[in-house]
Design a protein around this nucleic acid. Structure first.
Length: 571
DNA sequence: GCCGTTTTCGGCCCGACTGTTTTCAGTCG
């Protein structure tokens, strides 16, 4: 049983309770528990086995019992009973944007609906407006909500969202009315996927900014257009929310819109305990009411006697406690990265020559990059045979004599065969500076087999890094199931680095696994997996995962200088 | 349903926008 499966049950219970009009705080307790379980770095089954479920924040006696039942039987009677009481169509309706529990119940009671299609027909033929408080506009909203749902409000990758946000910001920046502007939300927290893009602006003339925003090119539909808050849909259904506040409220608003929701709730609770109130306009002393701060985020944290918390950590997974004790990690930054240890060239499936790659790396300020082309069993990617690899090593050495200010490291991305062996013999591996190993086939093996396969590769005396350890490709292939505790311990014991692959569809290891790996003393390597020069810029996404995993400079292999790296990788 | 240097009971973050009203409920973030 995986953590996210337990979390999903609790989230669905919360949805069901909402429809039943249950105590909102009880509903929140389920959602909070779900979120905390999802962000655990350890497997919930093992925590249950140890009997320490109630140490998880938000898990008390009752929920601990429910978790034990799920872990033991794979089911939860309470949840199944609840589902029986509520028609599935009501749950479906609540999933439509704009329809909440109240409206869904009302619609069901009146029409005894069987399907969403039926609801759409009723709305289109103006038969819903017989209900109280529903007129033509609401019918229109229901139709639009159904269309939105059908199109699917998928989360988009960070790599897709960030450039869109930057483009909109650049357009709005040119307005003289715009003072400060930044993106917020899960994008600023650099979550691997984001649902919509939040942008915050300070201005004393919000109306004009709103008018420009809702008529930007690319805006397909305006969802809301108020004085301080507007929402639009871009082509492809991407939602962008814009909020305008006074300059004095910038910090408070940025804090609020960056979230996460759980982080904000914790801060507001702490504020209450200390006699303050936080809103998006500032932090206020309650009696007598007086604004204390709000212009900068750091001032609000400061008022609560907390150290400044970087956006990537704001998930209420212990960062607030750490900030109170002054024990926050000093997060690794992009400028700490001294080189890239996962780069492909024309020799296999990359687009550029060794020389072009070296020049691009130098421009980025790197000291080194490792050329890690595929090896022979990965035929589809033009993997190198033993003689080809030998020739490449010679070529790299020859180039290094000529290159100034950048060093190419010899390397390869070895294929880990289905039995854990590598596809190139040891004598040549011994000549390489950096050996990266990865699984490219046989994904369907059992958890035990895959775990063993990776550990065998780590035990190999020449392997330095395991690339994209779980093999996931977002939207294409799920991560394969591994025993992470064993993998991490083996990585630590064999002095093998695990990769955070910076490719936006991979980001593998992810944030949660990286955090656990660090806790167990594993070193991580952030690799861009570049196949074309532009992709070197993806490094920022890998660094974001590292920051979300609380990693410091010392936890990341490629923050080492060339000299230290060579010393460290001499196995 | 959880939680406790105010508490084992009584709290639990806070505000904007919309559509329908004419002071507010519902929904959303």
């Amino acid at each position: 049983m995986k953590n996210f499966e337990v979390a999903q049950v609790f989230n669905e219970i919360a949805d069901l309770l909402e429809i039943q009009n249950a105590n909102p705080f009880r509903i929140r307790a389920y959602r909070k528990a779900a979120q905390n379980i999802e962000s655990l770095t350890q497997n919930i089954e093992e925590i249950a086995k140890k009997g320490s479920l109630e140490e998880i924040p938000g898990i008390g006696k009752d929920l601990a019992g429910k978790i034990r039942e799920i872990v033991a039987t794979g089911r939860l009677k309470y949840y199944e009973d609840l589902k029986k009481k509520i028609p599935a169509i009501i749950l479906d309706m609540v999933a439509i944007p704009g329809i909440g529990p109240k409206t869904a119940n009302l619609l069901y009671d009146k029409f005894k609906l069987k399907s969403i299609d039926q609801l759409e027909k009723l709305a289109r033929s103006h038969k819903i407006c017989v209900l109280p408080n529903i007129k033509e506009k609401t019918e229109g909203n229901i139709i639009r909500g159904i269309e939105l749902l059908k199109r699917g409000k998928e989360r988009m990758s960070l790599g897709m969202a960030l450039p869109i946000a930057v483009e909109i910001i650049n357009k709005l920046k040119s307005l003289p009315e715009v003072k400060r502007i930044n993106y917020a939300g899960s994008l600023r927290r650099m979550k691997e996927t984001v649902r919509d893009i939040d942008i915050l602006v300070t201005s004393t003339r919000p109306k004009r900014i709103m008018d420009v925003f809702v008529s930007l090119p690319g805006v397909k539909e305006v969802l809301a257009h108020g004085d301080t808050k507007s929402s639009v849909l871009l082509q492809g259904g991407i939602q962008v929310d814009l909020r305008v506040v006074e300059p004095d409220s910038y910090g408070a608003a940025l804090l609020y819109f960056t979230g996460s929701k759980q982080h904000n709730i914790r801060l507001r609770t702490i504020a209450n305990q200390k006699g303050y109130k936080i809103s998006e306009y500032g932090i206020f002393r309650e009696k007598p009411e007086k604004r204390v701060a709000g212009k900068e985020e750091a001032d609000i944290y400061g008022t609560l006697e907390l150290a400044y918390i970087h956006p990537e950590m704001r998930e209420d997974t212990g960062e607030i406690e750490a900030a109170a004790k002054g024990r926050l990690p000093r997060l690794v930054e992009e400028k700490d990265i001294k080189g890239d240890l996962h780069v492909h060239s024309k020799w296999s499936d990359g687009a550029h020559s060794l020389e072009e790659l070296a020049e691009a790396a130098k421009k980025r300020g790197y000291q080194y990059i490792a050329i890690t082309d595929h090896t022979q069993s990965l035929k589809i990617a033009g993997g190198l045979s033993k003689p080809e690899l030998k020739r490449q090593i010679k070529e790299v050495h020859r180039l290094n004599k000529r290159l100034k200010g950048i060093t190419l490291l010899t390397g390869a991305e070895m294929d880990i065969l289905s039995d854990g062996k590598l596809d190139i013999p040891d004598d040549i591996l011994a000549e390489l500076d950096i050996v990266v190993a990865a699984i490219h086939s046989g994904f369907k093996q059992s958890k035990e087999q895959l775990t063993k396969r990776l550990i065998n590769a780590m035990k190999h005396k020449h392997v330095h890094i395991i690339a994209h350890p779980t093999g996931r490709l977002m939207g294409v292939r799920d991560a394969y199931d591994l025993n992470f505790e064993e993998i991490f311990k083996a990585a630590r014991d064999t002095n093998t680095a695990l990769e955070i692959n910076a490719f936006p569809e991979r980001l593998d290891l992810n944030d949660i696994n990286s955090k656990r790996a660090k806790e167990l003393g594993v070193t991580l390597a952030i690799g861009s997996d570049t196949h074309a020069i532009d992709q070197m810029d993806n490094m920022i996404f890998g660094v974001s995962v590292a920051r979300r995993g609380w990693l410091e400079k010392k936890n990341v292999l490629n923050t080492l200088s060339l000299k230290d790296l060579i010393r460290r990788t001499a196995k």
